[in-house]
Structure formats: structure tokens, C-alpha cells
Amino acid sequence: MKQAIVHIALVVRDYDEAIEFYTQKLHFTLVEDTYQPEQDKRWVIVSPPGSQGTTLLLAKASKPIQNNFIGNQAGGRVFLFLGTDDFWRDYQDIVDQNIEIVRKPKETDYGIVAVFKDLYGNLWDLVQFNKNHPIYKRIK
């Protein structure tokens, strides 16, 4: 048996502002942007550069209760983890893009990590894993 997590839904306020942030500031690829008339919504998928794994489904809040979770999908914890093959290149790019850094870079036993906020306030780890970490080979 082979399974995979294909998409993670990220609740957003507006499709276009979310697409702009992820494609322009984080350099994600816009994989799909398809209007679904039967539900009056768009199917918007973005992916980190060079990634063949899980993608983000940018899901516009469509009910009042969903608005409460924009920017706080994990209750204040780091929600998403962006693995990189060059931490300092990507960290400097995030700084240059004026993306808010919440925790400055830190060397750990598993690699180097910093925490940043996306346009809505969700917390992300930017992480480069050490070569002996099990995840290293998945993003190398």
C-alpha cells in the first residue's frame, strides 16, 4: 500500500492576496487556479519551488466561523514547516521580502530553524535538516 498527504487546506481571506504572497514572496509555484461554479469557489493549489510533495490548498473562508481561523489554524503553534536545501539563502530572502521573523535562526540537534509569519499570521518553521535526520533525504 502507498498513500500520501496530497494537500493541506490553508484558510485564507482572499484568493488573490494569498496567491500573491505565496508566489511572489515565498516563490511558490501556482499549480492550479480553477473556478468551480457549482460551489462558487476556486480550487487554488500552490507548491514550494522544486517540491514534489504535499501542496497547499488555499481555501477562502466561506462561512463566518471559518474567518476565526484565518491566521490561527494551529492555535498559536507553528503550523507549517518549510524545508530547504539552503537555509541562509531562503532566510535572507524572507528577510528581504519583509516577512515577519518571529524567532531568529537557531542551531539545533536536527538542523537550523527560524520561525516566520505568513500574511495572515500563521506560524511557519523554515528549517534545514542535518544530513543524519530522517527527513533530510526527502528534501535534498
Rank of each mutant, 00 (worst) to 15 (best):
K2I: 08
Q3D: 14
I5V: 14
I5C: 08
I8D: 00
A9E: 11
L10M: 06
L10E: 00
V11P: 04
R13Y: 02
D16A: 03
I19P: 00
F21S: 01
Y22P: 00
Y22V: 00
Y22S: 01
T23P: 02
H27S: 08
H27N: 09
H27Q: 11
F28N: 03
F28S: 03
T29K: 02
D33E: 12
D33H: 09
D40I: 03
D40W: 05
D40E: 12
W43N: 05
I45A: 12
P49L: 15
T54M: 14
L56F: 15
K60R: 12
I65M: 07
I65P: 03
Q66G: 02
Q66T: 03
N67E: 12
N67T: 13
N68A: 07
F69I: 09
G71L: 08
Q73G: 14
G75T: 08
G76P: 14
R77F: 12
F79E: 08
F81H: 13
F81T: 15
F81E: 14
L82M: 14
L82I: 13
G83Q: 11
D85G: 12
F87S: 02
W88F: 08
Y91D: 06
D93N: 14
K106H: 03
E107Q: 10
Y110E: 13
I112P: 05
F116I: 11
L119S: 09
Y120N: 08
G121N: 11
W124V: 00
W124I: 00
W124P: 01
L126G: 09
F129C: 07
H133I: 09
I135A: 13
K137R: 08
K140H: 10
K140D: 04
